[in-house]
């Protein structure tokens, strides 16, 4: 009897532990508007049209309301998602975009360096995001240090710790 309780107790702890570990691993990101990257690409927009810092700054940035308002002041489609955007534009409230890719506080990353100098394409690090019809809930590519280093080794980029760790 006592042994049964023991086994039940230990298994319960293991289940709780597994749930805790599992929930901490992958955080899914829900965007306020079900944004369609592919449609915007088809309309002939460059990535830098919305992610304005991508060519010249460290951070690529998420589009401010003014950028959306250039085209979407009057609705262009029947889409319910676009209607959400139109409401925000009328109210003048910025879209609460959620960041998909986090950057560890001790890492310095510059989009400018990777685009202007290394001439990398966005999909090298972000996967086929330009063809996505819905916003991804988790990063397509996992940016681990090992992953960064393997690319730096292949392309002969700096392997100095201080080049990325700030």
């Amino acid at each position: 009897m006592l042994r049964g309780f023991w086994i039940a107790g230990v298994s319960l702890l293991l289940v709780i532990g597994a749930v805790l570990v599992g929930s901490g691993r992958e955080r899914s990101v829900r965007q306020p508007i079900q944004f369609n990257h592919a449609k915007h690409k088809a309309a002939g927009l460059e990535c830098s049209f919305c992610h304005q810092g991508v060519d010249g700054q460290a951070f690529a940035g998420l589009p401010p309301l003014e950028t959306c308002a250039i085209c979407h002041t009057a609705p262009m489609t029947e889409s319910a998602e676009e209607a959400k955007l139109a409401t925000l534009i009328v109210k003048g409230e910025p879209v609460p975009w959620q960041r998909l890719y986090g950057l560890a506080p001790h890492v310095f990353f510059s989009h400018r360096r990777h685009l202007q100098l290394a001439q990398l394409e966005c999909k090298t690090c972000h996967g086929p995001i330009e063809d996505a019809t819905t916003p991804p809930v988790r990063p397509a590519v996992k940016h681990s240090m090992k992953w960064c280093m393997s690319c730096h080794e292949q392309r002969g980029a700096s392997l100095d710790c201080m080049a990325c760790h700030r």
């Binding site: 506080p105 001790h106 310095f108 510059s110 360096r113 100098l117 201080m162 080049a163 700030r166």
Partner: peptide, 27 residues
Amino acid sequence: NPDVSLRPKGVIEKCTFCHHRLQHARE
């Protein structure tokens, strides 16, 4: 300064000859 981290507790920190400025100059 966004180019320099806030160091966590329990580490040693020191002058780096403003290495982040060198990074920008190099870029």
